[in-house]
Structures are given as C-alpha cells and as structure tokens.
Amino acid sequence: MGGDRAYARDGVADDCREDGRGRATRRALRMAIGVVPNANGSCAVTLGETSCVAAVRCDVTAIEAWEASDVGAIVLRVDASSIATTRAGRAAAVGETLRRRLESVVAGRERGVSDASGRASGSGVDAWDGGGIDLRSLCVRPGRARWTLAVDAVCACDRGSMLDALSVAVRGALADTKIPKVSLVGVGSDGEGGELEIDDDPDACTRVDVSRCGVVATTTKIGKHGVVDATDEEEACAEASMSVGVDRDGMVCGEFTTGGETLDRGTADAMRKLSCRVGVELIEAMDAFLATAVAANKIDEDEDGRVMVVRVRK
C-alpha cells in the first residue's frame, strides 16, 4: 500500500480527512440558476472544486405514429470531455455511464433496459413507477405534438463526486425550466388542422414538477469507513464506492456500486444508509433554495436570490 493510501485511510479512521472534513460532511455546495441566457432553464453547480453546468431547452416536436401518443420526452446528454475528467477510460464511455445514471435518478426514465436497442427512452409509460418527471405533463396535444426537453450537462472540472454535482445541476436546471404556454389556434370544425402558438411571456410559463426527482449522494469506502462527497484524491484511494440516487421521500431511485473482494453486503447496506441520509439532507437544502430562487427569478431582479451556498458544517 502506498503512502498516500495509508495517509488517507488513517485520516478517515480518525474522522478527519485531508481537507479537515468529517466522514459525513459535504464540501461547500454552491448553485446558481438561470445562468445560461438562451436556455429555458439552467443551473451551475460547484461542489468544492468540482464544477458543472446543466441547461434545458424546450422544443415542440411532432409525435410520430409509432410513438406513445400522450407523453413528452426528455433527452439527456452528458459531455464528459477528457479535460474535465481525470478518470481513466474513454470519455465517451464515461459520459454514457453518467448519462444512464442521471437519466434514472433525476429524470426517472432509464430503466436499464435499453442496452440492446441503444435507446429506449420515451417508452415504458405503462411501467412508470412514479419517480422522476411525469412525461404526461409534457404532452402538448395528444397524438400530434409534445414538448421535448433537451437536457445538456457539461462537466467543467472533475475533482471528485462528479455524478453528485451533475445530479444537482440537472435537477436544478429542470426546476428552473420555464415551459412556454402553447395554444392551438385555427382548428377546423372537424378537429383537424390548426397551428400552435407559443407564448414565451414569463408569467404565462409553466414549470416542470421536480418534486419526485432525485439527487445522487456517493459514499466512498476508504479503509473500514465510508465517506461522503470524496475528492478525486480520495477516490483514487478508494476500495469501493456506492452512488445512491435519493428522492425527497428517501426512496432509492438508482444505486451504482463499484467494489471488489472487500465489499460485502453488510458494508454495502451501511454505505446505502449513509448515502440516503446525506442525500435527503441535500435535497431538503436544495428545495428550500429552489422555492425562493425560482420565485425570485420570475421577476428577474434579485441576483443574489438565485445563488445558493451551503457551507461546510464543521
């Protein structure tokens, strides 16, 4: 075992990590909504030195004959460039991993069943388990038109716990999203024809309901203990890690583990418990901020109201 590993292990065992945090303490989380002017909703997040941005664009798209007729769609894309990540492996693979996980936790879409067909999003509404976003709320006109929310998440700098930061950013961006009001004009007497009129007056916009969307809290096992919100140095010393998506009710909405010989199920249970607790705390802090920030953003005057800083608890 290298010196750095032993150092990290001893620190964790003494409940004092390299940067002075305890095992269950997050780094400072800072988030700001409405940071990308030409997106319908956006959110920038920094978690310690880890930073990322997510933005949502809404488009009205046609519903094709073979698609489910009464639901909208969410298309998530994660850009993990090799500049941003220090993780080994091809950037495309890293991005795809992050995308699948976020889609499950935040958007509640990916069921892990799409690997054979490339993509299965938008389907499976019958099997919807009530997590994430209700796609039926994104339907403009059944059988004809729907909202497609294109969510782009960009990793700017990965200094550990990238997935946690991305989940906060995507959830924040969705909460900030203003969907323009759409009305149908000039429909013929037979119910056919007509045009969609999009009104992007901020007062007329509707919001996406993110109350069932989760965030990710990752617990990293170093030595005998689990720590939350690991830095990249700590991740390099880790024996195992478990990322758990948690929603406001404390339900697990996605769980992703990497381990090895030393990770038995008892340890995994303890890590899950810690992740759930920290995740619920995070989501409560986030929702309290979003409730005021989204209102402040509507009248667009209070710059400070759109930025949240959660300080490190010592």
Binding site: S104, G108, E110, R111, G112, V113, D129, G130, G131, A240, M242, D247, G250, M251, V252, C253, G254, E255, F256, T257, T258, G259, G260, E261, T262, L263, D264, R265, A268, D269, R272, K273, C276
Partner: peptide
C-alpha cells in the same frame, strides 16, 4: 466474486425502498 460474496459492480435502476433494493 462468488467465493467471497464480494460485490464487484452493482447497478439498480428505478424507484425502490432501501429494503426492497437490498
């Protein structure tokens, strides 16, 4: 790894209670 029952990789999708997931 079955002889040690060590979890190497786990992925859970969908919405579960912690107990169900376990």
């Amino acid at each position: 790894m079955s002889s040690e029952e060590g979890m190497v990789q786990g992925e859970t999708f969908g919405r579960w209670t912690a107990d169900e997931s376990r």
